[in-house]
Design a protein around this nucleic acid. Sequence first.
DNA 1: ATGAAAGCGCTAACAA
DNA 2: TTGTTAGCGCTTTCAT
Lengths: 283, 283
Amino acid sequence: MDYEPNLVAVGLRTSSTMELAVIVPNLSGFFYDSFITVLEEEAGKMGYSLFILLSCDDPETEIINLKVCRQRRVAGIFACITPQTTDLSTYQKLLELEIPVLFFDKVPPGDFNKICLADEQAAQLSARVLLESHRKHVLALFGDLNLSISSRRKHSFVKAFGAKADSLAIEVATSSSEAYEKVMAAQRKDIKPDAVFCMSDEILTGAMRAIQELRLKIPEDIAVLTISNGFFPKLYYPEITYVETSARKLGKLAFQRMMEYIGGDTTNKELMVESVMVKGGSI
Amino acid sequence: MDYEPNLVAVGLRTSSTMELAVIVPNLSGFFYDSFITVLEEEAGKMGYSLFILLSCDDPETEIINLKVCRQRRVAGIFACITPQTTDLSTYQKLLELEIPVLFFDKVPPGDFNKICLADEQAAQLSARVLLESHRKHVLALFGDLNLSISSRRKHSFVKAFGAKADSLAIEVATSSSEAYEKVMAAQRKDIKPDAVFCMSDEILTGAMRAIQELRLKIPEDIAVLTISNGFFPKLYYPEITYVETSARKLGKLAFQRMMEYIGGDTTNKELMVESVMVKGGSI
DNA sequence: ATGAAAGCGCTAACAA
DNA sequence: TTGTTAGCGCTTTCAT
């Protein structure tokens, strides 16, 4: 016939819904879309379906999303916390109810299961690439230093420059347009940078708008290096050299860890995704 | 206490899961991500949760996704069909089972509920903008003409050019890199285009890579106009003028229609989202 | 081996 | 009003 099992009934009976939830701040192109794509692909193969919940970087929405997860008795939660998340009691509660929570990308301090990008290593690798290019005046742009991702990257980056740190001008840009402004401002100074380092795609897009507007030649007038998921660097000519922080790898690892956890290994682990350099023509 | 209702049990009892599914080809195009973002926001407000299913433009995956929807007894499906989808019987079956199916963006022919972008109007508006710019040689790039979206846009575009169609060079580019090639090729010819029209973001990114490589000045050497959701045009300097096909508006309308349908209005309607021109500095 | 029955947590219908 | 009960569609246990 054309009978199809009712998974709602199965879920009730077996108290296993085969549904996973992912909480992300947004979907808009920089990173989480890739992460979720992998999750959905892997989940589908294993018979799981994926709920998507947006926090919009708002802790209240985050709490509401967690409530939904609980009411729906999801089999597991992939959570990226908001920058303002300090109260982890809702997450604790979920864990007590034996709903697996796997933090990824933006993770809280403390003893939890976490899957992160190797920020220190990515920043260090970036610094090394810049040092080897022998540029004299490097403008380095970092995001909001209140975010641990930014401060960690900056710290490792500066440290890796070591004695050559005097060739470095550090600036903070919390948005694409701020990055644009910083690059424009730097070009109005006496000593103009001959290299710019962007710690994220968002910053890269702003910096590149300025570079296009100033009609600077890459890499002759200015070298460009960024940390990226890999999409934006390919939009420009020449393609921008980047240190890859792969959302896909992060997703693969997160899903794998979730399966392990559901399979019984509920110890807390902190996993990292290492970065590699992808050569373009910008440095 | 801290009792939370079990929505799985509720779903079984009331045969209303309060779960919606959305089937999209991908998340990484700066279009479906916006669409889904709106859907999730609206769904959350109404107590619905959203499953995300990726078809990867593969009809077989599409069928599997529909099976999942059926087994999970979802309350409704937002579906963007693949270019190769011809067999609609699975969708028909779902409708017979009284699971609402709302087609959006890429929709099949026939009597269904559909929410579309006003392709004809967008193409017409684009043509008008180009005509008013009085450019002599317009290179117009369209996607795969097997897709109705491409053929409809092309047809309306050419029609709107009317007698001035001799100033038009039409090319097809089925990918970003093909668009790049077409622009490079056009510049090697005797008569070089002084304007380029891109029917989508994907084509724009390819065309812009060529323009950057050739170091053409926008709009002096070459004018640029695109049809877009609005993200990519802002990456360049000057910002690219575009005819907006808004994924957010599409999402809002789709969700609203879904609620109407679930509320009892199951007649088949075909709704359109009109486009507006957003002025950048590229034409 | 095959079949009957209990029950997952809820809601809706009915009885008191 | 409040309380009881049947049953949504399955899985699992227990009896045949």
